[in-house]
Design a protein around this nucleic acid. Structure first.
Lengths: 145, 145
DNA sequence: TGGAAAATATCGTAATACGACATATTGGCG
DNA sequence: CGCCAATATGTCGTATTACGATATTTTCCA
C-alpha cells in the first residue's frame, strides 16, 4: 500500500515524519532541560552528573567510573567533568579506602539545593511533555512497512 | 510517607532514581543514534538535519529557517550546518523564487540512501528500546510527592 | 613477586554552537 | 513611492567540551 509515498529504497513519508516528530519532541525536552540548568548556573552536563550521582541505584557511593558509565562518556572525560565540578563547588571527591584507585563522589549542600530545584521543574515539565513523547513513540510502531 | 527517604528540600530518593533512569535510557538511545550516524560517515547533527528535512511536514520545501526551528538551533548555526552539508554533498540549496531571502533545502541521492539506511536501523532500535523508555517515563508519574 | 589489568588523570586537538556583526530582501506606511 | 524596520541568511572570532594518546598509581592473580 501507499507505494507512491515510498521513497525508492526506503521508508514511507509517514515514517520519516514520525521519526522527525519524535526527535523534535526529544529536542524540546532537552532544550528545556538545558535552559533550566543554565538558568541555575550549570552547564547541562554538570546537571546530568548531579542527577546521576544523586539517583545512583547502588550499594556504595558512585565513583568517577560509575559516572562515566551512567553518562556514557569516556572515563577520562568523567575525570575532567568532575574536576570542573569540584572547582565549581558542586561535588567533593573522596578516595576510596577499599580500593585506592577509586574516587567516590558526593554532592555538596549547594548542589543538593540546585538539584532539588531543577528536578522539581523537570518532573513538572515531563508531566506536561509525557503525552506528546509517548504518542510520538507509539506512532513509530504503527505503519511498519 | 517515606519521610526518611526525602532529602531536606527535596524529592524522594525514588524520584531521583526514576529521573536518572529516564535520562539514562535517553542517553542509550542518543548514543546508539550517534554511533549509527558516525558509522555511516555522518556527524550526529547532520543526520538530524537530513531527517528534519525529509520528515518536514509542510507545504513547500524546508528552508534554512525551518531547519533552525526544527533542530532548535540559532538561525546562523543552521547556516553553518547547511554549509558543511553542501560541502559534504548531502544537500543542495535552492534560493526561493517567491522570497529571495529564503533558501530551500533538498537531499541529494547520496543523502537519501544514507538516511534510508539510518532510519531503518533507528526504527528497529526504537522498537526494542520503546518499552524501557515508556516505562521510565511512566514511572516518573507515580510517586509524586 | 612480577607484571597485566583497572581506575583515574593530563595534555593537545578537533568539532560545533554561540555572540556580535554584516548583508540582502521584503513589506508596510506616511 | 520611497524609506525603514523586520526578516532571512551569512561571516568571523571565541569558548566549551569530548576525545585520542599517553601517563601514573593501585590492585589482583598466576
Amino acid at each position: 500500500m501507499d507505494d507512491k509515498n515510498r521513497d525508492e529504497d526506503g521508508l514511507t513519508r509517514t515514517q520519516y515524519v514520525a521519526l522527525a516528530a519524535f526527535r523534535y519532541e526529544l529536542r524540546r525536552f532537552l532544550a528545556f532541560s538545558e535552559t533550566a540548568a543554565h538558568g541555575a548556573g550549570l552547564p547541562a552536563q554538570q546537571h546530568q552528573a548531579l542527577l546521576a550521582i544523586a539517583g545512583f541505584d547502588g550499594a556504595d557511593a558512585p565513583t568517577v567510573g560509575t559516572l562515566s558509565e551512567r553518562l556514557m562518556i569516556a572515563p577520562h572525560t568523567a575525570t575532567e567533568l568532575t574536576a570542573r565540578m569540584v572547582e565549581a563547588g558542586l561535588i567533593s571527591k573522596l578516595p576510596s579506602r577499599q580500593d585506592r584507585r577509586k574516587v567516590h563522589l558526593a554532592l555538596t549542600d549547594k548542589a543538593e539545593d540546585l538539584l532539588a530545584e531543577l528536578s522539581t521543574a523537570h518532573l513538572k515539565e515531563l508531566k506536561s511533555l509525557e503525552p506528546a513523547l509517548t504518542a510520538a513513540l507509539a506512532r513509530l510502531g504503527r505503519d511498519r512497512a
